[in-house]
Amino acid sequence: MLRLKDTIERCRGRKLARLLALLACLFYLAIPSPAAIKFDRTYNIKGQAHLTVANINGAITVTAWNRRAIAVSAINEPSAAIAEQVSGDEISLTVKKAMPPGKVSFQIFVPADTDLRLNNYLGRIEVRGVRGDVSIKSYDSEVHLIDAAIPSVDVNVTTGSIFFDGDLTGDGPYTLQTLNGDVDVSLPATTSFQLSTRALSEKINLGGFLNSLSSENKAPKSISGTHLKGGPRLSLIAFTGRILLHKK
């Protein structure tokens, strides 16, 4: 009988020890790590969303999803604080300038028709599946626009390549400019556009569009012309990189 009581006591003691260990773990996890702070927000969207993100140092990845909400998950160093401004469906997230500026990586999910305005100093920018207008200004970024069936786009980077794989679905304009990097565009064979390209150091490679473009100007470093019915203006400018077009 005594042994049974002992056993019960021991079991209770073990349970208590486990519970305490679990609580300690939860407590530890609840304290934010000094190396990284997590910024998590979900904004419900009624109409068409306009999202502005102004980062300084770090990646911005935006992916379209089927929900009518914008979900933002950012990991930031303690020295970088994110300021948010919400006015209806207009959302603006700005990394506050600090000395020295901390690193922030944004992972964002948006309804496909969201208009995007992304600004950065340094860090890769990737946009997937978006159908709204896109404006990207950065200094030192590789920019990837993937599955981008968008009505207009304006990308301007100083250093870094720009990759566009998608379709031109609106009136444009579609402008992609980099001073140091390639401009690499993949479009369906059926897309109509008015092309204007300027390259400084490298030749322009029209790929599969070479023969289907009725050219107005075909100098090796400045090609302009009409593809099929013409329409939206597609301007590609690369200073020290290449301009490459691919027919899908």
């Binding site: 300084i56 140092n57 000395m99 020295p100 500026p101 690193k103 100093y121 340094l122 200094y139 030192d140 100083t158 250093t159 001073l179 140091n180 400084l200 150091s201 200073f239 020290t240």
Partner: peptide, 28 residues
């Protein structure tokens, strides 16, 4: 001096990109 090494390097890289482009344009 207040930017930290990563941004400083990035700034220098951008300036080089631009100056090289300016230089190329001028030469052409």
């Amino acid at each position: 001096d207040t930017w930290g090494p990563e941004l400083r390097l990035s700034f220098e890289r951008n300036m080089t990109s631009i100056d090289q482009s300016l230089n190329d344009c001028r030469q052409l």
